[in-house]
């Protein structure tokens, strides 16, 4: 399988260790990732809110670039998934939009016809590769308890994305279970992490995060597991700001799903990946050398 890889600004610029884990896991599963000069997806809370027309045409440039290369797009960011999938829907369901974006694309020597699709890592792993196949690659049971948070833009709008149940998502729980992890049920599982309103109302955004952290920590998990880089940053870095603003004392480690998968697969370079975390988690990378050492001690 081969995809045009769309890391998205947040992963590529701020969370490169997440990108590394996606590339490590993809290589192990035989997925080839092709890098293309994509622009910002564009981000809905800024660009689409500013001008829907600019949003649609810039998204069309990304879709056209993938089409030019004969590839479907694979992204690790739920915001990029939603933006591109929604733009694709807007363009392909309305002939006037198809005409409008092609007029604009013509000025930069590009065109779009709507043959290629866009999926998220979550969909690739659960819907295309499947739990059983992933299980075959698991070498180490991770044995922690977690709360999962799929991310608003993976779940809604459901009629277009159809990734998981928008009110009661279960697939990410199944994906962690196959790694030996226990997913815990918790209140407000589908509630927003607060990122979406951060630019417009900083205080409200961290108050939302406070509510979400309260729900997550109530069931005493070892960590939170996400599939969205903005949610990752919101939880991992944002909890310190919540602590300062509201006098709380949260210290919850956060993992992006492919990091856990890479750990369970015992892939190398995971020490470096985990060194990118600001809140140190309960899991460490076991290098093959250490593993041999452990076995020697046990025998």
């Amino acid at each position: 399988m081969k995809y045009a890889f769309f890391p998205g600004c947040t992963i590529a610029y701020w969370l490169p260790f997440i990108e590394k884990s996606i590339r490590l896991v993809s290589a192990e599963l035989g997925i080839e990732l092709i890098d293309l000069p994509f622009n910002c997806c564009p981000e809905p809370n800024t660009v689409r809110s500013f001008s829907s027309e600019s949003w649609l045409v810039l998204a069309a440039r990304n879709l056209a670039l993938a089409e030019e290369n004969g590839l479907d797009i694979l992204t690790g960011c739920t915001g990029c998934l939603e933006s591109l999938a929604l733009a694709k829907h807007e363009i392909e369901s309305k002939p006037e939009n198809m005409e409008k974006v092609n007029q604009a694309l013509e000025s930069i020597g590009m065109s779009y016809s709507g043959k290629k699709s866009i999926i998220h890592m979550h969909q690739l792993l659960y819907d295309i590769i499947g739990i059983d196949k992933i299980g075959e690659h698991v070498k180490r049971s991770l044995k922690i308890r977690v709360v999962t948070h799929s991310g608003c833009h993976l779940l809604r709008p459901y009629n277009i994305l159809q990734a998981d149940d928008p009110e009661a998502p279960i697939k990410l729980d199944k994906l962690v279970e196959i790694l030996g992890i226990e997913p815990l049920d918790y209140m407000d599982k589908t509630m927003c992490c607060g990122t979406g309103t951060r630019r417009a109302n900083r205080e409200a955004s961290f108050a939302i995060l406070r509510e979400k952290m309260a729900s997550m920590t109530m069931v005493e998990p070892d960590a939170a597991v996400v599939f969205c880089p903005s949610c990752f940053t919101s939880f991992e870095s944002g909890q310190k700001i919540v602590n300062r603003m509201f006098g709380t004392n949260y210290r919850l480690p956060v993992y992006y799903y492919t990091e856990l998968l890479a750990l369970a697969m015992e892939l190398s370079e995971m020490d470096t990946v985990l060194s990118g975390h600001r809140v140190k988690g309960p899991l460490s990378a076991i290098s093959p050398e250490n593993r041999n050492l452990n076995q020697t001690v046990q025998s």
Binding site: N45, C152, P166, G194, G196, A200
Partner: peptide, 10 residues
């Protein structure tokens, strides 16, 4: 201030 979480329209 809308966070665009889309729970309202869901």
């Amino acid at each position: 201030a809308c966070a665009l979480c889309l729970m309202c329209e869901q």
